[in-house]
């Protein structure tokens, strides 16, 4: 076989794999939109559910997921970014920090149900936060922290050393240098990576199952110590636990569609922030 021939075959194989992945994802999206769109209307997203979710809307689940996301961002983003700054800028690069990094990467691969159990043990029971938005947000935050730390550290490390050297040589302290000449340039990468991680948290069921999610709770939360419904858990209930699973099929699809749109909105936000910072600091 000629080299040219094998080059062509490789090219087609790689292209084929890429297209088949796009095809699968595209089909999933298409399926959800096709079945979900007819059931999706204003009433569905603005009304309370009735008859254990067989009728009515999913407002409490939307509000629940949004508040969980807000809680996760508030907790995980500062913690994650600070850890990344420490690891990338301050910590000595030795065996100990290498171990910490390995631990963080390993944590990213821990099954989400394990985080759920951890959250149940620590936040719900030991710290006595109960099954609540607080417990759920903290659990989700723990779950996305590794992703945030790893992607933030990468973004920080991508900032050329020359900026740090120049700033230090002008008499800036280390923190001034980080604040003015490292963080701003890496912010677009940090935000993008973090939002993608948090977007994944939006769809997680296992961690919230044990720490916050209510099976059926047709009212809005009043404080962070309240239980809430959440979109992924609601979807799970409709699909597997509902007595009339077939009848609520359109509602399942519509719920999935809402969840997708929510995550899409998050990603879009990330992209806008990215563009903004890219424009501001071009390097």
């Amino acid at each position: 076989m000629s080299r040219r021939r094998s080059e062509q075959i490789t090219y087609f194989l790689i292209r084929g794999v890429m297209y088949s992945i796009v095809l699968v994802i595209g089909y999933i999206l298409f399926d959800i939109v096709r079945h979900g769109l007819p059931a999706l209307n204003w009433a569905f997203i603005s009304e309370y559910p009735r008859k254990s979710g067989s009728e009515g809307g999913i407002l409490p689940a939307i509000v629940g997921t949004l508040s969980l996301l807000a809680g996760t961002i508030v907790v995980a983003l500062p913690l994650g970014i600070c850890s990344a700054i420490y690891l990338s800028e301050y910590a000595e690069q030795n065996r100990f920090t290498a171990m910490i990094r390995l631990a963080i990467i390993t944590l990213a691969g821990v099954p989400s149900i394990v985080y759920g159990l951890f959250g149940l043990g620590l936040f719900v029971l030991f710290l006595n936060f109960g099954t609540s938005i607080l417990s759920g947000s903290l659990t989700l935050a723990c779950m996305v922290l590794p992703t945030i730390i790893v992607s933030s550290e990468e973004a920080l490390r991508a900032v050329p050393r020359g900026y740090r050297d120049a700033s230090l040589a002008l008499g800036a302290t280390k923190w001034e240098t980080i604040r003015t000449n490292v963080l701003p340039y890496s912010l677009s990468g940090i935000i993008t990576g973090s939002i993608l991680g948090i977007g994944r948290a939006a769809g997680e069921t296992a961690p919230i199952l044990l720490t916050v999610a209510a099976f059926y709770l047709p009212r809005l939360p009043k404080s962070i110590f309240d239980q809430v419904m959440a979109l992924p858990y609601h979807l799970y209930i409709l699909a597997t636990q509902h007595p009339e699973a077939d009848k609520v099929l359109p509602l399942q699809y519509a719920t999935a569609l809402v969840l997708l749109l929510l995550v899409l909105g998050l990603s879009l936000g990330a992209i806008i922030i990215r563009i903004h910072f890219r424009k501001k600091y071009r390097w």
Partner: peptide, 18 residues
């Protein structure tokens, strides 16, 4: 910090901030 105010430096690779 005081030392580096007194002793400026120009690097081999020009490194203006973006």
């Amino acid at each position: 910090v005081r030392l580096r105010r007194k002793v400026g430096m120009v690097f081999q690779k020009s490194n203006p901030f973006p």
